[in-house]
């Protein structure tokens, strides 16, 4: 999976690249409009992560140009601009997702994986990890070949974990993934705890292993024991 990260803030680009490389993606960085445009015209990428405000141009233009060359590349916009107009415009010209800075790398990773899945299999695929099988189209979960009924949030939580296996996830990033940023944080952290408790219980009941480990003070990690 080849990904181009277009971001002028060097540190942030580096963080994204390191994080995504660990997740098995091949990443390249472009820090200017010119560089991005050149790379996109020379090489083919599966996905483009693009910042809207660049020192020498606008991210929207990169997207428009890319759409003319290779329309199948997945596009995720990352921007500090949090306006509805930008989001709508981004989707109109063909981007797949819009993330507002600051974002969680784990969230970016989850959205990137979900985007790639949608692109490659039209969303009709199964996600399998150890004894866990998720039928994404039907939103059904099987643990050790037994169907496990999860609530909507528990299902979302499981998918988030599956997208970020072996990664320490902060409670805040889980809360934001599940409820967005409009819910008061102290309540949402409590809710994360109770949802995780339920998910863990349901999976163990069906004969699954306990993959969710809590990390003191930080959050949780989904990993094989």
């Amino acid at each position: 999976m080849k990904i181009l990260v277009v971001e002028d803030e060097k540190g942030l680009a580096e963080s994204m690249v390191e994080y995504l490389t660990r997740e098995g993606f091949t990443c390249e960085v472009a820090s200017t409009f010119m560089e991005a445009d050149e790379k996109l015209s020379l090489y083919a990428y599966d996905c483009l992560i693009v910042d809207l405000t660049l020192p020498d141009g606008n991210g929207f233009e990169i997207i428009s140009n890319l759409k003319k060359i290779k329309a199948t590349t997945g596009i995720i916009i990352i921007s500090a601009r949090n306006t509805l107009e930008d989001k709508i415009h981004g989707l109109e010209i063909g981007s797949d997702d819009y993330m507002t800075k600051p974002f969680h790398l784990s969230e970016l990773n989850a959205r990137l994986k979900s985007l790639i899945r949608r692109r490659n299999f039209n969303g009709n695929n199964d996600l399998e990890w150890n004894e866990i099988l998720v039928n994404l189209a039907a939103r059904r979960v099987f643990v050790a070949e037994k169907e496990t009924f999860l609530s909507r949030k528990e299902y979302d939580l499981l998918l988030y974990f599956l997208a970020n296996v072996d990664v320490a996830l902060t409670k805040e990033s889980i809360a934001e993934h599940l409820w967005g940023d409009y819910i008061n944080s102290s309540d949402s952290l409590d809710m994360v705890y109770s949802h995780i408790k339920n998910l863990r219980r349901k999976m163990i009941e069906k004969g699954g292993k306990d993959y969710i480990h809590s990390i003191y003070g930080i959050g949780y990690k989904f990993t094989a024991p």
Partner: peptide, 9 residues
Amino acid sequence: ALINARVEQ
């Protein structure tokens, strides 16, 4: 965003 990303790493 950078602080966040670095902390996550």
